[in-house]
Write a protein that binds this DNA or RNA. Structure first.
Lengths: 123, 123
DNA sequence: CTCCTTGTGTCAACCGATTGATACAAGGTC
DNA sequence: GACCTTGTATCAATCGGTTGACACAAGGAG
């Protein structure tokens, strides 16, 4: 099972790049461990409403970065060796980004925490 | 004196958006205080190697967000008041985005909250 | 008022990203 | 071997961002 990947339509960043960054996070943090298989091109493209070529570009760039290995018929899998430039700090990076935005909006820490708890999906 | 603004040529994110995000950071963090003047369009465009229209778009979006006020002949300055009406919904938007990233990384709510508290600037 | 500054608007042109379709190549399964 | 899956490659077409140039509008300073 692959985590829910999503695209922000309001973000001018091209979809192939949004996708790439999410995979970098997932691989770097170990959510997608070495050997884990990424979704087939057509399946992921269908789920996200993208063209096959767009997802293919994401996979191509991930492979160029050495994070992934693609084989025809065999799918795309996370590389065995782990080049971790930002493995652990992934969550902290996003936390910092959220904190910055919250402060920009005039919120204090507790307001930010409350908003976070409110936004957390049930489960 | 305006902080060093830089563009990452390797980042597929359009320049006007890279610029916009940097100003959001600078304003939100107080580096650019209320009333502070942003560089003139032509000057900033010249320094960054951009067309005037590209920088103009950044300023236009900042103004639409209420962070900045542009006047012909008078330049563009940081707004006196922090945008209060959009604060609530905007905070929720960022909280949701952070929550999603955190869950993507396999973190639970408490881990996300801890990371947030850790990332919150002192003061 | 005059002149300079500065933001705004428009235009044609180029480039990169995306789409949707099609065809092809290579691994996996039977 | 045949067959399905999956990644790769190409194509024309569309869309958005960017450029460079130019004209215009409005505030500031003398």
């Amino acid at each position: 099972m692959t985590p829910a990947l999503r695209l922000d339509a309001d973000d001018p960043t091209p979809p192939y790049e949004q996708l790439r960054r999410q995979f970098v996070d997932l691989i770097g943090s170990g959510v997608l461990p070495p050997g884990e298989r990424l979704p087939p091109l057509r399946q992921l493209a269908g789920d996200l409403g993208l063209a096959v070529g767009t997802v293919a570009r994401t996979y191509r760039e991930l492979e160029a970065a050495g994070l992934v290995r693609s084989r025809r018929g065999g799918g795309t899998r996370v590389t065995r060796d782990v080049p971790p430039p930002e493995a652990g700090p992934a969550l902290d990076r996003h936390a910092t980004a959220y904190a910055r935005q919250a402060r920009l909006l005039g919120a204090d820490l507790e307001a930010a925490v409350t908003a976070l708890r409110r936004s957390w999906p049930a489960g």
